[in-house]
């Protein structure tokens, strides 16, 4: 590869005082690729997001944008470098129309001198076009975003970020609050953004969502990187296994069995759980 990656992380660590939130994280985001960051609650995902989005600075390690070493001072700084963050709940203003949301903060205006007004037609047209590129036909851009489905709402934010020149999209748990079908819709938009040449960082705790769209997987557990794999280096079951932390799962199985001693219903559950974990481990080994 001759061109440098859009975004590269080398051995990034973050300490809050004596608390180590993140250690030795390395990954990269290429144009036209989806990098999935997987991890359970408390795995260090939000620290990871904050570093890339510019809200916090890394304590150690190197962050490169287009091959150039950088240190973000603020979210605005990250945005200027083409890194746009879409937060799960904070993406859009539900009571406002699609086009107003799309252009919020960067409205196109016309007029003379200090008297300026929004070029409504242009805004409405572009919003419609851009949403169309994402595969959503918005007939009426006057429609309130709140009336769209959860997946479509995320897509408005994604399309907006793409339109305003983002090179890297940082998506914070875009599917976590959504049902199966809506998650599928969002995954589709992630692919759409990828196909348009954007680098996407997709943060999730659901390996089933990550696997179909990801080109690269970074797995975090308790602030430690469990590995950074290209898609051909890892299988789906390994991914699931690693994400949950294999050793920990066995530990959990044991604990469940102990707790269930005497309780018939619970012990039944514990058995089932142990069975499933065993199966998973077997399959992962087999794959290797």
């Amino acid at each position: 590869m001759s061109e440098p990656a859009l975004l590269e992380l080398e051995d990034i660590s973050k300490n809050y005082g004596n608390i180590i939130a993140l250690t030795g994280v390395t990954t990269l985001v290429n144009a036209g690729e989806v990098t999935c960051v997987l991890g359970d609650n408390g795995a260090g995902k939000s620290t990871f997001i904050k570093i890339i989005a510019g809200a916090h600075q890394q304590s150690e390690g190197i962050l490169k944008v287009d091959g150039e070493e950088v240190m973000f001072d603020s979210p605005r700084d990250a945005l200027a470098r083409g890194i746009a963050t879409v937060y799960q709940d904070l993406a859009v203003v539900p009571l406002m129309s699609v086009w107003r949301n799309f252009f919020l903060g960067s409205e196109p205006t016309k007029g003379f001198g200090p008297i300026r007004w929004i070029d409504r037609k242009k805004a409405s047209r572009i919003a419609k076009e851009e949403m169309g590129k994402m595969g959503i036909d918005i007939r009426d851009t006057e429609q309130a975003v709140g009336t769209l489905s959860g997946g479509e709402r995320q897509s408005v934010a994604i399309a907006r970020a793409a339109y305003f020149g983002a090179k890297v999209l940082l998506l914070d748990e875009p599917t976590s609050a959504l049902g199966v079908k809506q998650s599928g819709v969002v995954l589709k938009y992630i692919l759409e953004a990828r196909n348009r040449g954007l680098g996407v960082i997709f943060i999730t705790h659901n390996p089933n969502h990550a696997w179909p769209v990801g080109d690269r997987f970074l797995i975090l557990n308790r602030g430690v990187s469990m590995g950074n794999f290209a898609k051909d280096e890892i299988t789906r079951d390994e991914l699931i296994m690693m994400m949950a932390g294999g050793a920990e799962l066995e530990e959990l199985t044991r604990e469940l069995e102990q707790a269930a001693a005497g309780d018939e219903a619970l012990s039944h559950l514990a058995e089932e759980f142990a069975e499933e974990v065993g199966e998973l481990e077997e399959r992962a080994e087999h794959d290797e």
Binding site: V93, M96, R100, F103, L104, G105, E107, T109, I118
Partner: peptide, 9 residues
């Protein structure tokens, strides 16, 4: 106007 949009926002 922009200001109007921001007010709603």
């Amino acid at each position: 106007t922009k200001f109007g949009s921001w007010t709603f926002a």
